[in-house]
Amino acid sequence: MTTVTPAPAPVSTGAAATDVEQRGFAVSSLVLGLVSIVAGFTFVVPVAGLVLGILALRREPSARTMAIWGIVLNGVMLAGVVIAGLAAAVFGLAMLPFLPLVFV
């Protein structure tokens, strides 16, 4: 009569959990890019999203597509903010000579 010992249970390495955790910067960059489109022209949100996207490219190779989309969205919105700010400054300086005529 022999006894059979059961095989040890497979040990979970947690690969699925670490894969989800490693996409945090990329997801944050993508979400901030979408929020900056919806929320309008801000300066801080696209800069934060751009930084997170660049960090995600370096640290998270599995989330490369999301990181690239976050960088693109945040870069476009940041360029829009800069262009709109420069246009407002030029328009304001161009209208400066006409300021006394407005308050007459």
Rank of each mutant, 00 (worst) to 15 (best):
G85P: 00
A56P: 01
P97H: 11
Q22V: 00
V47I: 11
A67M: 03
T18P: 00
L101S: 15
L52I: 03
V31P: 05
V27H: 09
I54P: 08
T2E: 13
G49A: 05
V27N: 11
L99C: 09
A9L: 13
R64M: 07
G24L: 05
A48W: 00
F91W: 13
A87R: 14
S36T: 06
I83T: 06
A79T: 08
G33L: 05
A94Q: 07
A39K: 13
L55F: 08
E21G: 14
S36F: 00
A56V: 04
A89Q: 07
R23T: 04
S28E: 07
V76T: 12
Q22H: 14
V38F: 11
N74A: 08
L52N: 12
N74H: 01
I71H: 03
G53H: 01
F25K: 13
F41M: 10
P100T: 14
G53T: 07
I71C: 10
W69M: 11
I68C: 06
V81K: 06
G24S: 11
L96M: 08
W69F: 10
F25E: 05
P61W: 00
M95Y: 13
F103Q: 15
A84I: 08
I83V: 11
R59A: 11
L73E: 01
G14T: 05
L86R: 03
A26K: 06
I37L: 15
V35R: 11
